[in-house]
Nucleic acid binder design. Structure first.
Lengths: 205, 205
DNA sequence: ACCCCTTCCTAACGTGGTTAGATTTCCTAA
DNA sequence: TTAGGAAATCTAACCACGTTAGGAAGGGGT
């Protein structure tokens, strides 16, 4: 009996090693170097072995995308410890852009249109949930009632992604992009506060 | 003498046909179908002929990217005819996202990290210039002095790109993304106006 | 000792970008 | 009119990729 569990353990282990090798290649050499044969070589196996652990390359890449989102999530949680509600929001913005700068190739596959849209949305969900949570506490702290909460989240998320992309697409440096993201977030939040003069209905026309 | 000019004309003509064929394949079947052999077949040539007109595939794709930006530019100019300065800004936002929705594959290559960053910036410049122009007239119309004009533009550009990406990455539908872009723009512009109470210094701390 | 299942490898297929070399086409100049 | 040569074009091939087929090897259970 124990042999089968050991084999399962070994299987899981090599699977993990494949993911780690793939991640290492991706982060250090970019998406162009991320080939099945290269990964197989790095884990000292032949190429077909990879297909015993992943249905195809996309499945493996999806694993990297999921890893990337877990990593981003953990950094978000760290940034979310900031007590001040306003600074907390800008720190999230800054952190998001920093992530894109520190893990450009990972960020690239995390937002690659080639990976299945549903899967991408699924693995990104926890990260977005943090953003939702933060926005909730922020709006509560400022007595702001967002008429369309989900819409506000999507705007925030899209804005962060866009400005981070400015950096990783080479339009601006990462430091500047981080600053831009903070400013953009500040401006948007300011807008939402002033849209709510005293009552709870933001201007929507 | 006229034969050489005719040959040059024919050369330019097939070059143009190649670009058109490539564009057609890209728009109708997506980036995965955009192969040299496929394009060559469509223009009724063999594959190597393409290399007499373009150094490599990237050079051809860059031409498509340039075309895409020219197309976007023309649509921007049309949207910029709106007389009302505020509505003009939101229309640009809406138009940008609509473009991404109507030309998803073109939009994709226009923002593909694989194409050279400098070239991409270069061909995108005229479009951004329109945005700059519009923002200039907007701020003049509202007596708003942006302390960091370029920064404001980059924020706008990044925001639009991010929200358009929300659509073409499949997070939200295009109609909704268009609405989000309008709202985001409105909010940001509102923020910039309220950041400038009467004097010309926006809050920067 | 035999068998079978899992694991692994080599070899191959099809498709992609790209290049070399031969072949055809067509102008030019004797 | 024809011989020479340059331009244009094709076929065949190269290499790398994702992926699959088929067989060898190894160890566990009967």
């Amino acid at each position: 009996m124990s042999t089968s569990t050991r084999r399962a353990r070994e299987r899981a282990n090599t699977r993990e090693r494949i993911i780690e090798a793939a991640l290492h290649v991706l982060e250090t050499e970019g998406v162009a170097a991320l080939t099945i044969r290269r990964i197989a070589t790095d884990v000292e196996y032949s190429a077909p072995v990879v297909y015993q652990h992943f249905a195809n390359k996309d499945a493996l890449v999806l694993e990297l995308v999921a890893h990337g989102h877990r990593l981003m999530l953990s950094e978000f949680r760290r940034a979310a410890q900031e007590p001040d509600t306003d600074r907390r929001m800008t720190r999230i913005a800054s952190q998001y852009v920093r992530f894109a700068g520190e893990h450009p190739h990972l960020f690239q596959v995390m937002n690659d249109p080639m990976v299945d849209a549903d899967e991408r949305r699924r693995v990104a969900e926890p990260v977005i949930d943090v953003l939702k949570e933060l926005l909730t506490t922020w709006s509560a702290a400022h007595d702001v009632v967002l008429a369309e909460f989900d819409q506000a989240c999507e705007i925030l998320w899209g804005t962060l992604y866009g400005i981070a992309s400015l950096s990783y697409l080479g339009s601006v440096g990462n430091d500047r992009a981080r600053y831009l993201a903070e400013q953009a977030l500040r401006t948007i939040l300011l807008g939402w506060r002033t849209e709510t003069p005293a009552n709870g209905r933001p201007a929507s026309s």
